[in-house]
């Protein structure tokens, strides 16, 4: 079997790598956070605490997987599966390097957006089926937050799409080879995409759907064992996805000086953004819920529309 786009081997390798990276992020995040808080973090299990992931996995797999008797079983079991599936599906259109990827879809960007919008169901069904007030509140917040920020996320990418003239993520990277990284002409789009991406994957500081101090654990209050593990890994998968998308859309994907192979450039850039997200978690406090919504609709929406308009004007006037 050859290693090319769409071959079974490459699909398997990408799937395994992505899940492994997401699992390793549990350790990476705890270590990085602790360095920024002048602690050491988990460093006991294995060298540098690297095997902490294994320990966590063993713990999560052997925990009692409990479905509360008052929950709606069908939706309760379905919800964590949705988030994993949806995010892993999104990875299928991400071009990791020349010849590395699952498909080269010519609707790649739209596909990612579609999958992101389906991801909202996971959270909502989890909250709704748990039949628990904290879960319900978390799900309500998540629904409103995810629908809103999807809008800005979509609009912020459109500038890049217009510049590259394609929805195909691989062609967007190739277009950046000639025109330079899109972060320079589309800096505003980049910032908005970054913010919307964090809100989409409800990471801190926008983890309002699961704000521990206010509503327990939000939508996954009732989850335990492997089902909770799926939400947990799903969140990290979302983080990896957003970091990869930023890399592809704004930072030239695998492009870089030739002394390192393309896949290494891709990983380096993606990891830099993952680290940045963790830094955000360490540094920025959580906004209030209404602040988040009004910030989105009253600031991000006009700015992203303006950005799109100006991009369009520039493209039209130069062509």
């Amino acid at each position: 079997m050859t290693f090319e786009v769409g071959s079974g081997l490459s699909i398997g390798v990408i799937l395994a790598t992505v899940i492994l990276v997401a699992a390793m992020l549990i350790w990476v995040e705890r270590r990085l956070l602790s360095f920024w808080q002048e602690r050491l973090g988990p460093n006991r299990v294995g060298p540098f605490g690297l095997l902490q992931v294994v320990a966590d996995m063993i713990k999560i797999f052997t925990k009692e997987d409990w479905v509360p008797p008052f929950a709606d079983k069908f939706s309760f079991v379905l919800a964590p599966a949705i988030i994993m599936t949806v995010i892993l599906m999104s990875f299928s259109v991400v071009p990791f390097a020349p010849g590395v990827g699952v498909v080269d879809s010519n609707i790649g960007v739209l596909f990612v957006l579609a999958m992101a919008s389906l991801g909202a169901y996971s959270v909502m069904l989890a909250g709704l089926s748990s039949d628990n007030k904290y879960a319900l509140l978390g799900a309500l917040r998540a629904a409103a937050q995810m629908i809103s920020y999807e809008v800005f996320m979509g609009i912020s990418i459109l500038g890049v799409v217009a510049l590259a003239g394609t929805f195909n993520l691989r062609e967007i990277v190739l277009a950046q080879e000639e025109n330079g990284w899109y972060v320079i002409p589309q800096f505003i789009g980049f910032v908005i995409f970054l913010i919307a991406g964090i809100a989409e994957s409800h990471r801190l500081p926008f983890d309002i759907p699961e704000a521990e101090q206010e509503i327990c654990a939000g939508y996954h209050t009732e989850y335990s064992g492997m089902k909770f593990g799926m939400f947990f890994v799903g969140e990290y998968l979302g983080l990896v996805l957003i970091a990869s998308l930023i890399t592809v859309l704004f930072f030239g994907g695998w492009l870089g000086p030739a002394f390192l192979p393309p896949i290494v450039w891709f990983s380096l850039k993606a990891f830099a953004f993952i680290a940045f997200f963790i830094l955000l978690r360490a540094a920025i406090p959580r906004p209030r819920y209404d602040q988040l919504m009004s910030y989105g609709w009253l600031f991000l929406l006009p700015v992203s529309l303006l950005n799109l308009l100006i991009t369009g004007v520039i493209i039209l006037s130069t062509s």
């Binding site: 360095f35 920024w36 808080q37 002048e38 050491l40 830094l279 955000l280 540094a283 920025i284």
Partner: peptide
């Protein structure tokens, strides 16, 4: 962000 990041060089 920068302040928190600079804690990387502070001893734990």
């Amino acid at each position: 962000l920068w302040r928190v990041f600079s804690h990387l060089w502070v001893k734990a």
